[in-house]
Structure formats: C-alpha cells, structure tokens
Nucleic acid binder design. Structure first.
Lengths: 247, 247
DNA sequence: GTTTTTTAATGACGGTTCGTCAAAAATAGC
DNA sequence: GCTATTTTTGACGAACCGTCATTAAAAAAC
C-alpha cells in the first residue's frame, strides 16, 4: 500500500543532467537544432521521463534561461564587492554582464529566445515566476550599489528618477549593447570581442556621466579600473576567456 | 524555343503577398505558430512556389525582418526632419523607434528572432546582406544628426568617441530599453505602454546628457518637445496607437 | 516469500511539419 | 499542333512533437 517514492535530490540532479545535455546540443546545433528526441537519445532516460520534468521544449528553454540568469546573479554579487568607488562597482556589474555573455554566448542568446512570446507563453507558470524572481535578484544587486552611491554623495539623483529607474537604465544599456554586438560575434575572432568590451565600457561611462555619478569619465583613470577587473575581480573569467580564444 | 518568362513585377508582388500572409499568421499565433503549410493554405499558390521565393522558414523570417526595418528607416527619416535643435532630432529618432515597436510589436520581436543565430545561419546570403545594408541606412540617419550637432556646437564630442560610436550608443540604449520592456507588454494595457514611453525618454536624455549634448535635460522643457512629437511629427502614428488601445 | 498496491518509466504511435522532386501545366515561338 | 523551356504542383519521406497504454520497480501487507 506504499508507493515508490523518488528522492527529491535525485530528481533535481536529473533535471540538471537534462539541462546540461540540452545545452550541449544547443551549443552545437543552435536553438533551432534542439530536439527532445536528441536530448533523450543522449540520456539514459526515456522521452516520457524528460516530459515529467519539462512540459514541452519551450519549458526546457525557460529552464535553461533561468539556470543562466542564476550564474549571472552570482557574478553580479561578486561585482558589487569590488574595492572601489560606488561608480566603479556599477561599472563592474556591467562588465560582469559582458564577461558572462562572452563566456556563455549560447546562454546569452537563450535569454533572448526565452523572452520571445512564443516561448514564454508555452512555459510553465512556475518557471515564469522563477524567472521574474531571478531578474529581481539581479536588480537587487544594482539597487544596493545605487544606495551606496546616494549615501556617499557620489550619485546625485535627478529629481524625476527613482533608484529602480537608475538600475533599469544600466541594465537596458548593457543588454542592448551586448545583444547588438553579439550578432557579429564570431567565436574565433578576438578583435570583435574586444570591440564589445570597448563599447560596453564607453556606453556605461556615458550613461553614468549622464546620471551625475562621480567621479566623471574625465576625472578618473578608468583603464586602471578595468585592469583591476581583469587582473583581480574577474581574473578567473578573463583567464578562461583568453584560453578559449587562443586554444 | 522561347520559354515562359515571369514578369519581375509580379514576382515582387507575390513575394510581398507571401510576407503579408506570413505576418498575419505570426500576429495570431506567434513566431512559433508560423508554418509554411499554413501560409500556403491561405494563398492561391502551392508550397513549391513559396519555396521558390524563400529557401526555408528562416529565410522568410529574415525577409519579414528586413521589411520591418525598411519601415523603421522611413520613420527615422521623418524624425530627423523635426523642426528643432539637433538634440531634439536625436530624441525624435529614439521616439520613432519606440513608436514603431508599439505599433508593430510582432515585427519588433521578429527583429530579435531574426538576430538569433539559428535563424540567421539558415537565411540566404542575399537577405543577410540586405539586412546589414538596411541597418547601415538606419545608422546613416543618426550620423546626419550627429554631424549637425557637431557643426552647431551643441554636441561636444568626447575625445575617445567617434560619431559612429555616438550613433551606436543611442541605438543600443533604445533597443535594450524597448526589448526589456516589451516582454511585459500586454496589448490591452495602456499603463505599461506609457511606462515604456517614460523610460525611453528618460534613458535617451540621460545618454544625451552623458554625451555633452546641449541643451541638457534641466535646461529645456522636454515635455513640450514630446508634445510636438505627439501632435505634429508623429501625429498619425500616435492617433493610430490611441485607436488601437481604445478600440 | 509471495502478493498487492501504487508510482515511475518506457517507447510505439498518431498527427504535424518540413523541404524535395518527378511529373504536370503553362508559355511562346515555329 | 508541336516543341523547347520554365514554372507550378502536391504527394512523399524524413524528422519531430507530445501522449498514453503498457511495463517495470518498489514498498507494504500478509
């Protein structure tokens, strides 16, 4: 009279296994090349089992998207620990976003795909809510830095702008820049990746100047700050990126 | 000894007919709901004929995307004729981009979809080149305004920035803002659409301040400028939008 | 140890969709 | 009407989706 009960932990492990396999397929064949059949064929489970975890292909995509946002959030949380001014921390967040997109181009495109109505509409309510929660977690980090900036007086908030709006402006700017430069991103070309870095820093600095966030672009050596990002704060990620470009 | 030759004009007309039908289907069922079979069933042609125009579904999507960019370009060209300062013209371009995305949400999402590698890779070389050319046409309009601003002294170019970079920064900002606010865009909700307007204007103004483009946000009544956009420059579009929201 | 009860996993199947290609229709000169 | 050539057609094989009746597995009851 007692059923076979599955361990919660193994269930999660299996879900992760499915997602990892799906991501491998997407990396090789693109989002359009992802097929439940292909995922199943590379797993020791049957199709029915996969469908117990994800209601459809789109639900799987949203799951992958959330997985990616989680790792971005982790990077953001490191970024705001940067030992420097509040504006430098803000820039660190933008830089982190960019690094993540370079290291995980597939996953960055996935986030765009998952925002497509056709994908979103088909996803589970549960996973959609998780997505919103995760995005709020991202914004939370930014809001913390903004609060620091206000407290120290480095940021003079324009009367018509709320902290949330400031956070959103940096996010929009970074997202737009990465998304538009991503399309030309060839994984073999160092030059183009470096262009993305330059433009992203430029755009963030323009934005932060416009927000009256001191020290202004001309009042600080931002090359130094970026060097600190590369050699200290994000040293592992930059190293990883360098290896991938050379090897 | 003489073959049946098809008129170039009818060929183009048919291509337009196919695209219009495809767009109708996407509006109803989303990008994922688009099916060549459905397109064919609503046309007086057979599947083979459609495949004579577009090599695959993705090629059709890119075709639709280009069609959309063309209409954006037309709106941009109107925007830069705005009777005002160079900064106002710049803002008008951003505003035009936003209006277009509100009036044609399906097409805006299409542009994002078409930038997806899985779609791009499968598209014809020809259509990809057309896409790049069209984007350059968009940037061309912006460059013209930037050149005006420089000539009049309203824009003080920072030493490390080229005009193209300035143009690209406004594009990135507008694109990112619209894309991120689009996801929550419910076609029945007036409030959310108005939020997009507010944030887009905010973001553009912050950016233009950061670029040292006079008159600064605080030195001009931008509400007035926006009113001119709404009641004069883009009166037809705003009216169209209002009708759609009410009716 | 056997039977029973309940849950989990399986994979064959019907239904779509894609893109192709051999055959048919259409066109224009003779 | 005949021929040479191009265009159009839609039936077809292949691939994929998501379902669901069936099978396997595990634990409790006996």
């Amino acid at each position: 009279m007692s059923p076979k009960i599955i361990d919660e932990a193994t269930l999660e492990a299996r879900e992760e296994e499915i997602m990892r396999t799906a991501l491998e397929i997407i990396s090789e064949l693109g989002v359009a090349g992802l097929t439940i059949d292909k995922v199943v064929s590379q797993l020791p489970y049957s199709k029915g089992t996969v469908y117990n975890h994800f209601t459809c292909k789109e639900d799987l995509l949203t799951g992958l998207c959330n997985r990616s946002v989680k790792s971005v959030a982790a990077l953001f949380e490191r970024a705001i620990t940067f030992d420097g001014s509040s504006r430098e921390k803000m820039l660190a967040v933008g830089y982190a976003y960019m690094l993540h997109s370079m290291l995980n181009p597939t996953e960055f495109m996935l986030v765009i795909s998952a925002k497509t109505p056709s994908v979103r509409e088909k996803s589970t309510e549960r996973r959609q809510e998780e997505h919103v929660a995760l995005e709020n977690r991202l914004l939370g980090g930014l809001l913390q830095v903004i609060s620091n900036g206000l407290a120290s007086g480095e940021l003079q908030l324009l009367p018509h702008l709320s902290p949330a709006q400031v956070a959103f402006s940096l996010w929009s700017m970074s997202f737009g820049t990465i998304a538009l430069l991503h399309e030309t991103l060839d994984r073999c070309s160092v030059r183009i990746e470096m262009q993305l870095e330059r433009e992203l820093v430029n755009h963030c600095n323009i934005l932060l100047d416009g927000l009256n966030w001191q020290p202004y672009t001309q009042e600080h050596n931002w090359m130094d700050t970026i060097d600190h990002f590369k050699n200290e704060l994000f040293a592992p990620e930059v190293e990883q990126l360098r290896e991938r470009l050379n090897g």
